[in-house]
C-alpha cells in the first residue's frame, strides 16, 4: 500500500521505494540473526550437556531453533533419542562409577 503510494509520487518507474522495503526486511532479519547466533550456540551446548548426563545422545541430533514472531518468539528444541537409550544410559553410569 505505502509502496504503491510512493510509486505514484516517485514517478513511473521509481525503484527506490522497492529498494528501501527490501532493505528494511532483510536488515531486520540479519540484525536478529547476528545478535542471536551466540545465544543459540550456548543454549545448544548447555542443553546437550544436561541431557547427556542422563541419556546417551548423538550431539548432531540436537537441534535448537529460534523462530521470531511479531510479539512472541518460539524456541524449538529437537533432540533425537536412540531407542536403546536405557542400555546406553547404564553404560554411562558404569563408566562414571568405574
Amino acid at each position: 500500500m505505502s509502496m504503491n503510494l510512493l510509486r505514484l509520487f516517485g514517478g513511473r518507474n521509481a525503484s527506490a521505494p522497492v529498494a528501501r522495503e527490501r532493505l528494511q526486511i532483510l536488515l531486520a532479519h540479519e540484525r536478529g540473526l547476528l545478535g542471536q547466533s551466540d545465544l543459540l550456540v550456548t543454549l545448544r551446548e548447555e542443553i546437550l550437556a544436561v541431557v547427556s548426563k542422563h541419556v546417551a545422545l548423538d550431539p548432531d541430533k540436537v537441534i535448537v531453533k529460534l523462530e521470531r514472531g511479531k510479539s512472541v518468539s518460539t524456541l524449538e528444541v529437537d533432540i533425537e533419542v536412540p531407542n536403546d537409550f536405557d542400555k546406553a544410559k547404564a553404560a554411562i553410569q558404569r563408566r562414571m562409577a568405574g
Binding site: 527506490a16 532493505l23 536488515l27
Partner: peptide, 16 residues
Amino acid sequence: RAARGEMLNIDDILEI
C-alpha cells in the same frame, strides 16, 4: 536520479 526515484534517498538511508 534521486529525484526520479531511481536511487535510495538520504532520509531512507539514514532511517535504515
